[in-house]
Amino acid sequence: MTTAAPRHGADNGASDKVGSAMRIIVHNTKCQGHARCSAQAPEIFKLDDEGYILPGDIEITAGEQLLALQGAQSCPERALEVDRTPAAQREPDSVERGPDELKSTSVNVAARWPG
């Protein structure tokens, strides 16, 4: 199960500034391959060959925010968490992980079937 704490940013308006876009935290162990996220926004939510979301959090640019939000909110398993903390305020390691690097991560099938 997930260990990441919810990180919804304080509603101070900072997240609306260009360049401080949001991030989608992907809880892979919860993903069951409904593919509703990618039906909303295939460019943002990429699936593997079995139809489950690729691992790794997804950085969202300012222009994609609405689409990303809709995609995250369409997940029946609640596997996609919206993180509005401005990038500058997050722990450094999570900021450095760019989307391209994440796409090449191989799929950890075992992680989906705990126990």
Partner: peptide, 19 residues
């Protein structure tokens, strides 16, 4: 039940994936 379930799901998933 998992984990046996997942082994078979992985075998069958690609046959009915969105793609």
């Amino acid at each position: 039940d998992p984990p046996a379930h997942g082994v078979f799901r992985s075998l069958l998933n690609p046959l009915l994936s969105p793609k």
